[in-house]
Computed example of a mutant assay.
Amino acid sequence: MLNALEVFTTVIVGLMVGVEFCVAFVMSRIFNALPEDSDQLARAHGGRMLGALMPFWYVGSLVLSAIWVMAGWGRPGTGLVVVGAALLIVSVIMSLLLLVPINNQGKTWTPENRPADWKEQMNRWDRYHYARVAVIVAAFAFLVTALV
């Protein structure tokens, strides 16, 4: 049963990392290349769509990692899972303090109501997101290492 939990948790976290990596290094570049107001409209739609899904994915990944720690306490590799879970906690805190406030504003913007500095705010969100991606990639690496 513990093996199934370990694999399931690693897959769930890995998929989350893949989505966030794609947002950071693929989607943002695609959005930035869109003409006129399309960049802002795409970011607003993405913010609404992923903003509804990602909290569950982040918290779910953290909960699964915590269950893995408790179920595997005393087994080899548990320390690696603890570090991975701690990094997932850091990613949730980063999200709540840095990314969510910008996203909550950006997802309501239209070309008619967006602030003059909307691009600067989106660039700030991108920078914070790059840092968060680095944190969750590290968390995933610790979980994979614990698994093998």
Rank of each mutant, 00 (worst) to 15 (best):
V100E: 00
T145L: 08
G51S: 03
R48D: 02
Y128P: 02
Q40R: 15
N104Y: 00
A86C: 15
L88W: 08
Y130P: 13
S91N: 07
R48I: 02
E36Q: 12
G18Y: 03
T78M: 12
Y128V: 02
W68Q: 13
N3F: 13
A85S: 15
W125G: 08
M54R: 03
E112L: 04
T110D: 02
P35D: 06
V90M: 08
L99V: 09
S65H: 12
G84R: 10
V148D: 05
V81R: 12
D39I: 04
L2F: 13
V17L: 06
A138V: 01
F25R: 08
W109E: 06
E112C: 01
V135Q: 09
D117L: 14
S65T: 15
M94T: 11
N32W: 09
F25D: 02
L99G: 04
C22Q: 00
A141R: 01
D117T: 07
K119C: 02
G46R: 01
A52F: 12
M16I: 04
P35K: 05
W73C: 13
F140M: 14
K119H: 04
M1Q: 10
A131M: 13
V17I: 03
L80A: 00
E112N: 06
M16T: 08
R43L: 08
L80E: 08
I67H: 15
L80V: 00
A66H: 13
H45D: 11
F56G: 15
E120Y: 06
I136D: 00
R48L: 10
F56N: 05
L50M: 15
L143H: 08
G72E: 11
C22Y: 01
A24E: 13
V135S: 03
G106L: 08
V23R: 01
V19I: 11
L88R: 03
T145N: 00
P101A: 01
A141P: 01
T108E: 11
D39V: 02
I102D: 08
A134M: 13
N103P: 07
